[in-house]
Design a protein around this nucleic acid. Sequence first.
DNA 1: TGTACATCAGTGAACGCGCGTTCACTGATGTAC
DNA 2: TGTACATCAGTGAACGCGCGTTCACTGATGTAC
Lengths: 224, 224
Amino acid sequence: MTEKSTRHSSRRRKPGRPPDSGEQDARTLLIQAAAPLFAERGVAATSLRAVALRAGVTPAMVAYYFQDKAGLFEAVVRTGLTRVLTAMRELVDSDSDAEFVPRLIRTYLGVLSADPWIPQILIREVVSRDTPLRRMFQEEFAAKAVELIAPRIQLEISAGRLRRDLEPRFVLLSVVGMCLFPFVAQPVLGPLLNLHLDGDFGEQFADHTARLLLAGVRVPGDDS
Amino acid sequence: MTEKSTRHSSRRRKPGRPPDSGEQDARTLLIQAAAPLFAERGVAATSLRAVALRAGVTPAMVAYYFQDKAGLFEAVVRTGLTRVLTAMRELVDSDSDAEFVPRLIRTYLGVLSADPWIPQILIREVVSRDTPLRRMFQEEFAAKAVELIAPRIQLEISAGRLRRDLEPRFVLLSVVGMCLFPFVAQPVLGPLLNLHLDGDFGEQFADHTARLLLAGVRVPGDDS
DNA sequence: TGTACATCAGTGAACGCGCGTTCACTGATGTAC
DNA sequence: TGTACATCAGTGAACGCGCGTTCACTGATGTAC
């Protein structure tokens, strides 16, 4: 999972096992090539020929390493989910004096900004559809994420820092929605609102989200 | 646009122009059939044969009425956007003593709950992709919606009911994300969180969203 | 140390299926005289 | 009022393209003797 340069090799390879150069193997190249294509166009609209071309490899390699298109897609999703989960683990393992909720949002948006295809694929192809990947997502990601984060949130509540009159399930929906939506809306709203996902958008938007979530939009003191 | 019963007619029709029964025409039937299919499976993964079968009509009718698949999709999107915009217009035209922000969210979530395919298609196929539909969405929907709503929000700000220290573009992203996400996440998070989009979910979630947006999650008085 | 060979990583041509689209045709309806 | 005919709403078979997938094959590498 050390993904650095996507080699767009157009020079023809000779048949047969290639000499063992220091380059990445076809498996990794295919995942790197597929991720942004799946995110941009959707899985159904992305051909394996397009993926293979971008990876500088033969379409037959998809069957070789992943069995079929669904296998490649699953590998892409696993790669993304692993990154998010790793970041979450590092967050709860580290200790800091800063408030937990802003740190959580900052971490979450940090990983997603680094690989925008993660939220894009999650929303468009995993979360919205009732596929076999759904179980995988629930059991191997959602469950573990809740397991990691929930105790810390409980701690905040016990400490009297978070309101008790909110439905936790709804809050979860709201927060995740707030965090994921900008990545999906980027192509339309980006030009309209002059947004750029790269650079320090992640940090700025994380700060905004944390503040909005904690204090809301209403002027303090007005309780009508 | 009076869409009531999707006739799943499997009985064979005779060739030639059919007798003018009171039934809906193929154009309307195709839009009604395509909308939920496009929302569930995505446009690329939905075949015109599947749409035509569900509409009880021949695939050739797509070319007849919409020229091609893209034309049918555009008609579906226009149908959805028109519904949302109509509701928005009715909202700003009506007058009420209730606070504006909760009414706005309630109206918005109301239309979307009635036709969940609207937010699903918008997120997965319009907003996330850089297609010709993007311009249509921006010019014929987003621009008009902002034109309708922005003055009312300004009014709230001038009245001192909304905070001034928030970036409006970010707030827009957050609110729209909060409202749309539940519809997209329903297939995964629904069973997990025991959510049902129909029934009074719309109202309950609208109330939650309005409260969260206005006051945030932090216990009032804590300004650390 | 040399050598035979199984394995591994990959090629590239081909196949068949299903897709979007086309096209010649049909029969009920509306209309002009 | 009857009739001829253009139009309108639709059929269903067919076409060709591009897709996912398969398959026979290849040559470098690692390993056992």
